[in-house]
Design a protein around this nucleic acid. Structure first.
Lengths: 204, 204
DNA sequence: CTTGCAATTGACCAAATGGTCAACTATAAT
DNA sequence: ATTATAGTTGACCATTTGGTCAATTGCAAG
């Protein structure tokens, strides 16, 4: 019944971008406000702290970006291994685009934040881990389905998930850490090895 | 020809520990000084900036800890795959000890710093990447030797190194990010899969 | 057209930040 | 013992930090 605005959304977007680029601790409230075109007073009208904003920004990114994309790619109507292949391709394309747009690729925002916030801010840490965990569920489902189809040869689903998940987040993290896309290149082939898929059918 | 002291060493040690625990941006010069038992004036007598100290601390850690340990474990007198196995075991033990001592495990200091400093401080970033690169050379040599012995079944050494290296740093990063040691547990078995070693000999 | 309230503003704050400096002190070598 | 100098000190600084607040503004519904 009064004034409305999208300042809150702009703040979450700005916080998401800046944190992704520079890390949580390197980003200041002032910088977020400036980027969002919002005065600091308004910031603290919408959020009670920088940490709360970071959490809200993660939730926002998950709801509006990550989740829909994952639901699309990991649709049960896709063959399980096809999901992985497609996902890795999308990842590569996105990070490639980011390299061109921003000059470097930034990896997985949840993972970076989780690494940084460990032992500093328990609430931010917990939140980042929650979204990582949700993300890993898609990998898990795909591998489980693949096994049900007999498409993979593994001793244990959990162990296989652990391996592919490490490979995936590791490759994203490395691509950020060393500033190039190489680690993302062979993700699918490496995963197939972990999953015990005989001689990844090389098209001739 | 005058007073000597180990203040410089104490500063590097303090910076190393604090940065490993809390991250580069979260650590303040004051905190480093307090931990080292050194006044800020002395800090800037030995180092011209926080960044320079961070770099010196990395070099110090590499020379005095990482390098000797890697040289020992990756000795050419060890069979190549044995080197990997031993290294992964040592990693696990160290991170386990850290969990007990510090309440959580901290992963690889060079990798964490590399992720955080990307795009912020070019010199710190470059330094952290240099030490990561040196570390990866040990993995590369082991895999190359393994292939020369016919102990692995891989298409390309480079590709295999990429995979194992991603798995290794990924597992360390994840163990920090999520705060438990699970990712480090199956590192060797997963690596053997990537290296195409048939059915890791399960002792009965 | 009023009025109630969501949203905005900018001035303000205490604390913390990275960094400086001139003066001082202890000691190793002569 | 003197001296040259490596090392130490603590006061000081400008800036930035996260955060507060009372006053104000604009809009949507009655």
């Amino acid at each position: 019944m009064a004034r409305t605005s999208d300042a809150k959304e702009r703040l979450m977007a700005a916080a998401g971008e800046l944190t992704w680029q520079q890390g949580y601790n390197a980003v200041t409230v002032d910088a977020i406000c400036e980027r969002a075109g919002v005065k600091k007073g308004s910031f603290y009208y919408f959020f009670k702290s920088k940490a709360e904003l970071a959490i809200a920004a993660m939730d926002n990114a998950w709801q509006t970006r990550s989740r829909p994309e994952l639901d699309r790619i990991f649709s049960a109507s896709n063959p399980p291994l096809e999901r992985l292949k497609q996902y890795f391709n999308v990842l590569y394309q996105k990070q490639l685009e980011m390299s061109q747009t921003q000059g470097r690729c930034l990896g997985c925002p949840f993972f970076s934040l989780s690494m940084e916030s460990g032992g500093l801010d328990p609430e931010v840490w917990e939140a980042s881990r929650r979204y990582l965990n949700r993300k890993s569920k898609y990998i898990e489902a795909a591998i489980r389905d693949a096994q049900a189809e007999g498409a993979v040869e593994i001793d244990s689903v959990d162990e296989a998930v652990e391996g592919v998940w490490t490979l995936l987040e590791g490759a994203l993290a490395r691509s950020r850490a060393q500033g190039d896309l190489d680690p993302l290149r062979d993700l699918y082939d490496q995963s197939l090895r972990l999953l015990g898929v005989k001689h990844p059918v090389r098209e001739t």
